[in-house]
Design a protein around this nucleic acid. Structure first.
Lengths: 342, 342
DNA sequence: CGAAATTTGATAGACGTCTATCAAGACCCG
DNA sequence: CGGGTCTTGATAGACGTCTATCAAATTTCG
């Protein structure tokens, strides 16, 4: 019942501890024949290195840097808190996390920050990407300097990042369509979409998925051109309220960006009899209340805490030399309604 | 940036390593004055013991026993696989997991197994409980012998278990009601419920939650008396098919136990034009397919993998002496539809 | 074949904590 | 104040792995 140690491996392979160590840590100066003897001893024993002991011995530290957009976007501020809390927990695993903020949507600033990162003080980077070529180039250079890079929440396709931790936004949009289509089934009419600009690519993907599903599965409903709320509560409220007043056939609203407060306010102005189903994104204190009082029907959510944990896990495994680590469990598009609130 | 060690604590407190060790490990023979000197050094330094090093040194092992019901219930078989896989992973953390199976619904057998557990060879137990007094008594005795006990998936209220890892089944039922009510909104009619007997208490709770929500939020719908499918596919199919044929007003089906195959088969026999919304429990290969081909609208799910992880985590923390540990994140009632499948 | 180069072994000390033992110091009580 | 009891300190070795160094063995090749 005791796990085999390097001593057992050495004994079974008929070599010394030093040799086992050389093999385990890929040091040079081991003949191929010897190496394979050791490897087969490892396999036959089912030896797995005790990482705790190894880290203890070599005083390994993982120095990570999280890069988040600055600004008032509430999802990002929650994410920042999550990073801070996980940073405290990660300290126990020899992981030091530093958080940097760059102006939102500012690809230049992001790229510059990436360029300024020194491999002498940072081993890995998790970034909320802004989609731009200049950023891709900065990522490539960072990788070339030997720093591990993963994207978080918002991906950077076509770059040399080694992983992405976040939801599939097309899938999120499809899920919204699937829900809202069903919610509005008995009441054919028009469906309004409120877009924003939290991160342009993400919103475009959500919209795409949403329209796909509505068109193919619920062709009776008409989607009206998305309102550009720019993630601003007041703007969202004004635009949506006007639309709802103009168009009494609107039976459903999908808000795929920020501005949930504006959505709720616009709805609260409706006459008593009017029944509009609403699906929005991100579970926050506010959207939670709205679910409880019935103003929202469902909230799609990504678990930012787990995203942060996932990014840390991924970076650590990259730094441990695992070839292409994947998350044990992908980040899912979670659905919340009044009755399954955590 | 380096974490303080016991050496630092000793230096700051002006005592020897031995004394720090006595304080940290609650050994006797330390004057109160000295103890408080050490404690304040610990606090001022923010010292946290390096658990990896401590476990390494004391060769701590956590010997856990998972008790699952035997039988063909597919959820339980998945759970068993999850336990096996997590057991392999847990070995790395000095945790040895043994799995025991008892006949399902057999409180006597479960109690006997609990009674047979030897504190010399088991430190903690995670059990899928069968709700009976004899089991409560066995749990109390087990606790008295110094073994930690938590319940998994199915709780044992009123017992001396130290924690429960699983979903809130009333909440699950409410969520089902909330979904199905919305799905059927345009089509007032009757809603059929298929019960089972996987674990009686759980099913009763789901039913309760479901009826609560339908009655209060969707009073136009009529709930018909639950079919007792006994988690048997053929029985479920026959009973449900008959009901659907008899009653053309059925617009929704909620299956709160096992027997998803039977539900799907009963539905496939319906005439083309008939549209019935379906919500079932547990995401499996089968229910996944059914979501994809449109025969089910939503599946409620509990992440059994995470439940197993949670039980391990909880037991470990109990054994580490944490007073009343709680899961960092509760197990949630997850909602799956075609488009947010993992 | 012999010298040089390569491969292997042996040993010691470290990482942070735990356990055990023994000696020395502080305190108490009669 | 002397003897005994409590309390504290010092020291050594262990856990499993890593790093470094030096010596010994083996291979390679001119």
């Amino acid at each position: 019942m005791t796990r085999p140690t390097i001593h057992d491996v050495a004994r079974v392979a008929g070599v010394s501890l030093s040799t086992v160590d050389r093999v385990l840590n890929d040091r040079e100066g081991v003949r191929e024949k010897t190496r394979s003897r050791v490897m087969s001893a490892i396999n036959s024993l089912g030896f797995e290195r005790n990482i705790a002991a190894a880290n203890l011995s070599r005083k390994r530290r993982y120095r990570l840097c999280f890069i988040l957009p600055d600004g008032q976007n509430s999802f990002m501020r929650v994410l920042e808190e999550d990073v801070a809390e996980e940073a405290a927990a990660a300290l126990r695993d020899f992981t030091v996390i530093e958080t940097r903020k760059v102006p939102a949507f500012d690809a230049g600033a992001l790229a510059e920050l990436l360029r300024s990162l020194d491999p002498e003080s940072v081993d890995g980077v998790a970034m909320v990407a802004t989609d731009a070529t200049i950023v891709r180039i900065a990522v490539r250079e960072l990788r070339a300097r030997g720093v591990a890079v993963v994207t978080l929440v918002s991906d950077l396709p076509g770059s040399e990042k080694q992983g992405f931790v976040g939801i599939d936004n097309v899938q999120a949009g499809r899920t919204a369509g699937s829900l809202l289509g069903r919610f509005c089934r008995g009441r054919t009419g028009r469906i309004a979409m409120v877009s924003g600009s939290m991160l342009l690519r993400d919103h475009a993907e959500r919209r795409l998925g949403f329209e796909q599903v509505l068109r193919s599965e619920f062709p009776d409903q008409t989607i009206i051109a998305p309102l550009e709320g720019l993630d601003d509560k007041d703007r969202v409220r004004d635009q949506l309220a006007e639309r709802l007043a103009q168009d009494p056939d609107i039976v459903g609203v999908y808000s795929l960006g920020a501005g949930n407060r504006g959505v709720a306010e616009a709805l609260s102005g409706l006459p008593a009899g009017r029944d509009v189903s609403v699906v929005v994104h991100e579970l926050t204190r506010f959207s939670r209340e709205a679910l409880l009082d019935g103003s929202f029907d469902a909230v799609l959510h990504q678990n930012s805490r787990r995203e942060v944990q996932g990014a840390i896990e991924l970076l650590r495994r990259l730094l441990d030399g695992e070839p292409q680590p994947a998350l044990s469990e992908p980040i899912r598009v979670e659905i919340y309604m009044r009755d399954n609130l955590p």
